[in-house]
Nucleic acid binder design. Structure first.
Lengths: 360, 360
DNA sequence: GCCGCGACGGCAACGGGTTGCCATGTATTG
DNA sequence: CAATACATGGCAACCCGTTGCCGTCGCGGC
C-alpha cells in the first residue's frame, strides 16, 4: 500500500522512514549502512517500510559526512579516438565490481580543458584515473596530493602508473620489419606532450642499435588521420621503405596519403601502427599494428585506484607494465627488391649515410 | 602568505575563512553565491582571505541545500559505437557553456545496466540526456517524472525528444538508389528495441510506395560489423541489388561478407548505411550513407535540457527534428545491366513477384 | 529632532545522513 | 544471585553550505 498522502515531489528521508517504523533516524541509517549493528528483525521491518515509502538514500548527504561519493573520474584525452572505448569498458567493469560509478571526462586533447574539468570534478569523486593525460607532471602531482590518482599510459615518479610494454612492442615491430628486409625505419611522431610518443621513439632508437636497422624521426604531427596525411607528404620528400607511426589513425592517414601520391603500400613502403583500433582491420590494406591490452589497462588502473581509495598505499615505485603483441596484417611486406621500377624519386634519394642526423 | 599551520589534509571551509576575515560564515557564503548582497569591499576582503587559505566551495554541501549539482548525465547506448563520440562532444560543449559538468554513462547496449546506472546517478545530477536509450518507454517516463529528461534519437509521448529526420534520410537514399536503376531495396534491420530501426523501415516502406520501388526487410541483426556479416549470408540466399542497412557498422560488415563470398560491391550490389561514421570514409569502397548532424544532436538535446532545468516547461509536443543529408561514396552504383555474367546464383533467383510478402 | 528606508551582516534553522557515546535490557559467567 | 559482557537503540553533534528573518546603522526627508 504505497503512501499516497505525501506530496509526491518531496523526497523521502530517513526521518520519514523512522516515523513510520517507529524507530529513531539513526537506526534507519544504520539499517542501511551498518546492518550488523541493528537487530535483524528491526532491520527487516525498516527495509520494508523504506520500500513501501520509496525511500532512496541520498548519496550527496551521505557523502557530506563520509566524504565518500562512490564515484571515480576517468579522464580520457579524446573521446573520438576509438582506443579509449575499450579502456572505458575495462574501467567501468572494474568500478562496477567495486560498487563505484565512473564519471567519464573528455579532455578534447587540451591541457586547459583537462585541468578545468579535473578541478571541477575532483571534489565530487573519490579518485581519478588519468588515461593519456596531457597535463604537466607537476599538475598531475598536485592533483595526486589531494585525491588518489592512477595514471595510465605514462610514467610519473611518485604517482602510481599503469603502462603498456612500449619497448617490447616497438622491438617486435622492428624485428618484423627487419625480417622483411628493411634496413631503415622512419618513426612518424605524434604529440610531443604524449608520453608514449617519447618512449616509442627512444625504444626504436634502442631496437635499431641492436638489430642494426637505421632509424630516423619526422614530425611531430597531430595523432589523427589528417596528421598522417600530412606526414605522408613529408615522407615523399624523404623516402623510406618502412614506417612506424605513433598510432593507427596516423598510420591509416599515411597509407591514404601515400597511395594518393601513387606510392604503394605495402609494395613500396611498409607501414606499422600502434593500438590495433577496430578500423585497422577495416582499411585496405589491413594495418599491421602493435596491439595493446586496452580493456586490461582500464581495468587494472581502476582496480588499483580502488585499492588506494580503500586505504592501500598505492605503489609508486615502478609502473605496472602490461604486455603487448604485434598483429601482422597486409600493410607490411618484404622490401621491394627492385627499387628502380619506374619510380625515380625513390632511387638515389635515400637519406644520407646517417639518417638519424636530424634527431634532437 | 599561505597558512602552513593548518593540517593540510583538512579541507578549508567557509568557517575557516569567516574566522580569518572576521565575519560570520553566512557572509562568506554570500560573498560567493550572492555577491550583490554584501558590501563590495567586504566581499573583496573575503575573497582574498579565501584565496590565501585555498578555499574551494564544496559542491556536495552546496547541492545538499540547493538541490543543484550543476551536473547532467549523458547516457549513451554503446561507447564503442563511434556515432556517440560526436554527440558527446556536442553535449559537452553545450553543458560547459551553461556551467554544467557532463557525466557520461555507457549502457553497453543493455537495458538492465542502463536502468541501474541511471538509478544510481539520478539523484546526483540535475537532468539526464538519454541518447538512444534501450529502456522501455514506461521506464523512461518514470525517470522523467523525477528529473528533467531529454531523449535523443527516439520519440516518446510526454517526454521532450530530439530526433533526426529519418524519413527524409531514407527517402533520399531510396531516390538515389532509384536513380541508379534499382527497383528493389532490402532493408537490413538492427535491434528491434531501437526506435530509429522501426522508423527507418516504415519510412522505406512509404518511400517505396511513392517511388515505385519494391522493398523488403531481413533481420533483425546485431548493429555491429559481425551482425552485418551474418546479414550478408542471408542476403546471398535471397539476392537483391540494393541494400539499405540500419547503420554504417552493419553496412561495412555486409560489404565485407559479400565480397568474401565473391559478390562485388557496388558492381553487383549497392549498399547504403546510416550515420556517416568516420570509418565509412576509410573502407573500400567508401560507404554511401545518410549523415546525421551528430554534434548538433548532442548540443541541441543538452541545451534543451538546460532550459528545462532552469525551469522552462520542456516542450513535450512534437519532437525537435534535425536535418540529415546523403553522402554519396563508392558503395552505390548503377544497377548491373547484365545480370548473367557468370554469377548464376544471382539469375533467376530474384525474389517472387511480391518481395514484401514476408513482412510483419 | 524624528521617522522611514535601504544596505549590510549575523543568527539560527535547515538539508539528509553518519557516528561516538551512553542507557537500557538481556544473556552469560562465577 | 551478583557481576560482567554484549546486543540494541537513542541522543546529539557533526559534515558544509544556504537562506529567511531580524537587528543595526547611516542617511535623507520633513
Amino acid at each position: 500500500m504505497p503512501d499516497h498522502t505525501r506530496p509526491p515531489d518531496k523526497r523521502v528521508t530517513i526521518y520519514d522512514v523512522a516515523v513510520e517504523a517507529a524507530v529513531s533516524p539513526s537506526t534507519v541509517s544504520r539499517a542501511f549502512s551498518r546492518p550488523s549493528r541493528v537487530n535483524s528483525e528491526t532491520a527487516e521491518r525498516i527495509r520494508q517500510v523504506a520500500e513501501r515509502l520509496g525511500y532512496r538514500t541520498n548519496p550527496l548527504a551521505r557523502a557530506l559526512t563520509t566524504s565518500r561519493t562512490q564515484m571515480i573520474a576517468l579522464v580520457i584525452a579524446d573521446i573520438t579516438n576509438p582506443v579509449y572505448a575499450e579502456i572505458v569498458r575495462g574501467a567501468q567493469e572494474a568500478a562496477t565490481d567495486g560498487e563505484y560509478t565512473t564519471v567519464l571526462i573528455d579532455a578534447q586533447e587540451s591541457d586547459r580543458r583537462e585541468r578545468a574539468a579535473v578541478e571541477r570534478t575532483m571534489s565530487t569523486v573519490d579518485g581519478i584515473v588519468l588515461a593519456s593525460s596531457r597535463m604537466s607532471d607537476s599538475a598531475i602531482r598536485m592533483f595526486a596530493k589531494q585525491r588518489p590518482v592512477v595514471v595510465l599510459n605514462r610514467a610519473i615518479a611518485d604517482v602510481p602508473c599503469v603502462v603498456t610494454d612500449n619497448p617490447r612492442g616497438v622491438r617486435r615491430a622492428a624485428e618484423h620489419l627487419g625480417e622483411l628486409g628493411h634496413d631503415h625505419i622512419t618513426y612518424v611522431a605524434g604529440p610531443q606532450a604524449s608520453w608514449p610518443n617519447g618512449i616509442r621513439w627512444r625504444s626504436l632508437l634502442e631496437a635499431g642499435m641492436e638489430l642494426e636497422i637505421k632509424v630516423r624521426q619526422i614530425g611531430p604531427f597531430s595523432p589523427t588521420m589528417d596528421g598522417g596525411e600530412r606526414a605522408a607528404q613529408e615522407l615523399c620528400a624523404r623516402p623510406t621503405t618502412a614506417v612506424l607511426a605513433f598510432n593507427d589513425q596516423m598510420a591509416i592517414g599515411i597509407i591514404r596519403g601515400l597511395s594518393r601520391m601513387g606510392v604503394n603500400v605495402p609494395g613500396d613502403v611498409s607501414v606499422v601502427g600502434f593500438d590495433n583500433i577496430l578500423a585497422a582491420d577495416l582499411v585496405t590494406p589491413g594495418l599491421t599494428t602493435v596491439a595493446a591490452p586496452l580493456y586490461a589497462e582500464g581495468s587494472a588502473a581502476t582496480r588499483h585506484l580502488l585499492t588506494m581509495i580503500a586505504g592501500a598505499p598505492g605503489h609508486t615505485g615502478r609502473p605496472m607494465v602490461l604486455p603487448v603483441r604485434l598483429v601482422v596484417r597486409q600493410s607490411t611486406a618484404a622490401r621491394n627488391p627492385s627499387p628502380g621500377r619506374a619510380r625515380p624519386q625513390w632511387v638515389g634519394q635515400r637519406p644520407a649515410s646517417n639518417p638519424a642526423a636530424h634527431l634532437p
